[in-house]
Amino acid sequence: MMYGFAWDTSTPLAYAISILPILGIGLIVTLEATVCGFAIAMGVGLVFALLRRAKSRLITWPVGLIVEFLRDTPLLIQLFFLFYVLPQFGIVLPAFLTGALALGLQYSAYTSEVYRAGLEAIGRGQWEAATALNLTRAQTYRDVVIPQAIPRIVPALGNYLVSMLKDTPVLSVITVVDMLNLANLIGDRTFEYLVPLSLVGLIFLILTLGCSALIHVIERVLPKRGIALR
């Protein structure tokens, strides 16, 4: 019995159906962590990308190193680092927020690359034409650069969103009660891991396939006429 739901281990199917509501509670946590983490990743990644376009090497070089470091080290250790080290500096966050922050920081390294590639794909000629037409920098970004960058950026961001979704189970290690955590708890109680773990796998599969399909739809409806994407 968990969250008021009892399980029925008489047959695998009955077992699966009976624990589905419990896993549903974990699914919500999983989705919340993904959404929060991705919002952080999109924001911090943008800051990194813009800093890496700065003129001074005193800025671009350290930022490049930080991005590289975030990208090349395991999420798990970054998560432990934040979880155990932040409180030593007086920053005590709920486990969920620590988890979302770790996800966000790791993925900000990826999103910053996505932004950078998207911006760099816009040739110098476009900037020069905008200057020659006397558009302001803000107008150039809004009307010329960003509309051309978005169709390149969005699909790549979408792929990282799916990827982050699949990384959220790691948060269970810092006591975030996500789907995988619940499946393990159920397994510990019933001594039957196959069904809960398989069910979690299946739910992830449905989620990621659904997300991928959604990304394809978004890709198709994005206004990108005239833009050569390759």
């Binding site: 000629g125 037409l133 558009l135 010329v144």
Partner: peptide, 26 residues
């Protein structure tokens, strides 16, 4: 005003929008 060797039209805008963009904005 300037006309470039490689045209530098804005690829995501129609011909008309390319021509009116700056007069409207600027």
């Amino acid at each position: 005003g300037m006309v470039f060797q490689s045209f530098n039209l804005f690829p995501h805008m129609t011909v008309l929008r390319n021509v009116i963009e700056a007069p409207v904005r600027v």
